[in-house]
Computed example of a mutant assay.
Amino acid sequence: MHASMNYVRMSLELHLFFARIMKEHSFFLETGFTQRDINFIQQADNFRTQFDTLLGEVISISDGAISQEVLQSGEIISPYTLRAEMASSFYTGVQIPTNLTQAEAGLTGGVVMRPNDMLVQAVSSINQRAMSLIAALAQFKSTILSQVLACKMFTNSYPLLIDHIMREAKFYWRMVQKIEARERMNLEAEILEQELFWNRIMAEHSKFIRGLLDPTEDELITTANNFGHEFDQLTAEAKAAIDKSIPILKVTEDSLRATRALRDFKAQGTNGIAECKIRSIIIPLLGDHTLREANHYLRLLKSYRQV
């Protein structure tokens, strides 16, 4: 693939996944504050709408410029996304623009395109603006975490969840920065960085799910707890691979097996929440959110096996 089109494809695919993640983080924060912190509610809502705008721009130039593999992975939208958005909007009163989800459902991929200077410039502009917006959101999350840990604010988000979404914002920023700088990639180092990052994320997802399930959901709590422990071990394995203590292929294979099982658990849970068959305080969009992140990681792991 021509270098310019590879730059376009990598940028658009990253934003299609992560811009949606960021707008949902903003939504979760917005709906978690108390009325005393109306200023923070307004700031979170502003970030949410800015990421809606960014995502809309990305969607408008993505048709035919991204891979079929990404479109089919379930990381951009899942079979549950639209329903989860509608239900979450109903529960909170926050108007979620489902037209973005419908537009993403109509995207096509796999078309070989010639380099287009206007498209490259448009993507570069998006990358630059995205980096500024991501950095501002990461700082906002850091401020919230500091306030919560100092007992100056109450929110229904776990402190670890706030830290978790702050790390995801910083990770997104670094990925955009690497693409925009046209950095030459050290493939092994990139794989290890991704596996260390995402194994920790999967461990924390499992623990959040465990803590947000109703106490009567004994079987689901036990399953989520077991996944948490398993991904803690996989995070340790990824660190060991970085130190050359174990082969990288072992980490990839172990992570692939565990992530596939966790993805299936999340899919069942997301559907169960949508159908009101699971007792929890998990808002439907959060279930779908964690499912898409597992789908994203699965696609990465499958690609690493082919290296």
Rank of each mutant, 00 (worst) to 15 (best):
H25K: 07
V111E: 12
E30Y: 05
Y80T: 08
I96W: 10
L71P: 04
L82R: 13
S62D: 03
T34W: 12
S89Y: 05
H25D: 03
N46Q: 09
T53S: 14
S60F: 01
E69R: 09
S60Y: 03
R20A: 02
S73D: 15
Q72C: 04
L82N: 11
S67Q: 08
T49D: 04
T98Y: 10
Q68K: 09
Q72Y: 03
Y91L: 05
G109R: 06
L71T: 09
N99Q: 11
G64V: 13
T92F: 05
E75P: 08
T98S: 14
I59A: 02
T101L: 15
S78R: 12
L55V: 01
L55F: 02
A84N: 09
P79C: 14
N99H: 13
A103R: 09
A84T: 08
Q95P: 06
N39F: 09
E75R: 14
A65Y: 14
D52G: 03
N46S: 12
T49W: 02
L107G: 11
I96C: 11
F90R: 05
S62G: 03
H25T: 07
V70N: 08
A103F: 02
F28V: 01
S88I: 04
T98M: 12
Q35R: 11
Y91E: 03
I96M: 14
Q35Y: 09
G110V: 02
F90I: 00
V70K: 09
F90W: 02
G56D: 09
E24G: 04
N39G: 09
T34G: 11
N46C: 00
I77F: 15
A103L: 05
Y91H: 00
I21M: 06
G74V: 14
I59M: 02
N39W: 07
G64I: 13
V94G: 10
T31V: 08
E57H: 08
G32P: 00
Q43S: 10
L54I: 09
G56Y: 02
G93Q: 06
I77A: 15
S60I: 00
F47I: 00
N99T: 08
A103I: 01
E30F: 00
V58H: 02
Q50K: 15
Q72M: 05
M22W: 00
T98W: 08
R48N: 10
T81S: 15
I61P: 04
T34M: 12
Q50L: 13
F47E: 01
Q50A: 14
E75T: 12
T31N: 10
Q50M: 13
S88H: 07
I66V: 13
E57Q: 10
T108N: 13
L29H: 01
T108G: 11
G106I: 10
G93V: 04
S78I: 10
M22C: 15
A105Y: 15
D37H: 04
G110A: 05
S78V: 11
S67E: 11
D37K: 03
I96Q: 10
G32C: 06
Q43C: 07
